[in-house]
């Protein structure tokens, strides 16, 4: 069986900075792969390259065995755009401030049908279905982004991504801006949707505590290059690379520690 996504020697330079240097990995169906590293490590760039939001310098990305065009305007670009969706860290910045929750989903649903006309009743039942799928109520339908809480906004963005019925969602720090109790709700939702809808997640984050309990596999990036890759359990119990060990040491653990004398 071929992997859902296979990335081969992906490179991208900004000026004289290597944001992605020879990055290669595979992602299976229904797998959650975490991409970790500090700011500037290139993890976001890799996510954006895969989602087609940046143009690569060199390398290949194959999706279900097909070579992705990766450049806006190229043939089939939009078709893949539907299969690969993206969720950003700041939902307020990803939502049109003048669009209500229902408008946001209706626009996405129309796009999912390649702009073919949809009956109003069809649109309305579609929006309700997806609002419900991410745990929003119908009372949220007509709210504007600023009238929703942070967690509700992130749910709406997830619903917008899901209604395309994608195979892969690139999540760029989707819970970093949220409070812990809301963060847990969103992670729970993402994990449930992975199971129910069979999507794979490329989960970009700096928070190793979240990675440990959420991801199946982990890829550690440092200065644009992959330095370590492994199953979550192995990587945490037996980190090989110095940088991984450094990340683990500096990661604050929420448990009581004896104060140093």
């Amino acid at each position: 069986m071929t992997a859902l996504l296979s990335v081969d020697s992906l490179c991208k330079r900004f000026g004289d900075v290597d944001a992605a240097k020879d990055v290669s990995f595979v992602l299976d169906s229904e797998e959650i792969l975490a991409l970790v590293g500090e700011s500037g490590s290139g993890k976001t760039t890799v996510g954006r390259l895969i989602a087609g939001l940046e143009n690569k310098d060199s390398g290949e990305v194959r999706f279900q065995g097909h070579l992705l065009p990766m450049t806006y305007g190229q043939k089939d670009f939009l078709r893949w755009g539907r299969e690969i969706q993206m969720i950003f860290q700041n939902p307020l910045g990803a939502l049109n401030p003048f669009f209500s929750a229902a408008d946001v989903l209706a626009e996405a649903l129309r796009f999912a049908r390649s702009g073919k006309a949809m009956k109003r009743s069809e649109l309305s039942s579609g929006t309700d279905f997806w609002l419900d799928a991410v745990g929003l109520q119908s009372s949220h339908r007509n709210r504007l982004p600023h009238q929703l809480s942070g967690g509700q906004r992130q749910r709406l963005v997830i619903a917008r991504a899901l209604c395309m019925e994608p195979r892969l969602i690139v999540c760029d720090e989707p819970v970093s801006a949220l409070d812990v109790s809301i963060q847990a709700q969103i992670l729970d939702l993402l994990r449930r949707l992975r199971k129910e809808r069979g999507v794979s997640l490329l989960f970009i984050t700096h928070d190793l505590n979240v990675v440990r309990q959420f991801a199946d596999r982990v890829l550690v990036m440092y200065r644009g290059a992959c330095v370590e890759e492994g199953a979550t359990g192995d990587l945490f119990s037996n980190p090989q690379h110095d940088y991984t060990r450094h990340l683990l040491e500096t990661c604050p653990v929420p448990a009581y520690q004896e104060p140093p004398a």
């Binding site: 812990v180 963060q183 928070d207 190793l208 505590n209 990675v211 309990q213 929420p254």
Partner: peptide, 10 residues
Amino acid sequence: CTPNWRAGPR
């Protein structure tokens, strides 16, 4: 609801 990597996959 706070994840903790040292506590394992919880």
